[in-house]
Amino acid sequence: MAGDEPPGVSIARKAYAAFAERYDAIAPTKAHNALYERPATHALLGDVDGLDVLDAGCGSGIGTERLARGGARVSGFDITPEMLALARKRCEGLNVAFHDSDLSQPLDWLADESFDRVLSSLALDYVEHLQPVFREFFRVTRPGGQLVFSMGHPMRDWQDERARGGGTYFETNLWGMHWGGFGEPAPYVQSYRRPLAEIVNGLSESGWIIDRLVEPLPDSAMKRQDPGHFEELSKAPAFLCIRARRP
């Protein structure tokens, strides 16, 4: 159902704090993550060996660990303490520094032009206003560096009447649903549905040049693990993955 949260309450923190350990245990192999979004996003990121990478909205560190084991020097941050604790445990001994920070706020603890890559995997859906975030990502990225992110596909969400509520496609609205696949009680997660133009224009107006846009297809292994969702995702995408470049 669409709705509003009280000012100052992070919808991501509220949701993930309630099922952080279940998420951390299930997401590494859950089909939508392991066989759909994550391969597409990391393919856009490419080889990170020797690079400085920011993992923005790192969650429990699943992608962070992959970056660090790929040879990157990683800084990760998240707004949910329970997820950060899991991330620190997962990445113990690796070249990773974690911080408690909010995507919707200035990243003033990071210096200008600090990173070669910025990764934000399925985190921007919890931020109402994207352009300030894109500007901060631009600021902390070195010239020639890249931003890679994934988020809910605007048209997929628009087709779901739970997501669109009573508004129009052109509006940004807050909505929520109970997620399946993460055990009981099913977590209630809210996020923002927005038009594609808001994403694309927000990038370009922040200085980014879009390099690649991917509407991913599921990995063939998903057909065996989750045939129903494999068939659904083979017909229409659930997520959108974008790579942008700082000139």
Rank of each mutant, 00 (worst) to 15 (best):
I11F: 00
A2K: 12
T141H: 03
I210A: 05
D219M: 09
H32Y: 10
G3H: 02
H229F: 14
L107T: 06
M151F: 13
I79E: 03
S60K: 02
I11L: 11
Q131A: 13
T141S: 08
P28T: 04
A186K: 15
A25F: 07
I11E: 02
V148R: 02
T168P: 06
R135D: 12
L130Q: 09
R164V: 13
G50V: 02
L110D: 03
C58S: 09
A31E: 12
S10L: 05
F77D: 01
K89W: 09
P7V: 03
D211S: 14
R245N: 10
G50M: 01
Q159G: 15
E171Q: 15
C91T: 01
F77G: 01
P247T: 09
L174V: 11
Q159R: 15
R212L: 14
K235A: 14
D102P: 03
V127W: 00
G145N: 07
L44S: 03
L35F: 08
D160M: 14
A186P: 07
T141E: 06
V48D: 03
Q146D: 14
L45M: 13
L240F: 09
E113W: 05
D102A: 08
V140T: 01
P143T: 00
A123W: 06
W158Q: 09
R193M: 12
F19R: 05
T29V: 15
Q146F: 12
T168V: 11
P81Q: 10
P6A: 06
V200N: 00
G207L: 05
E205G: 05
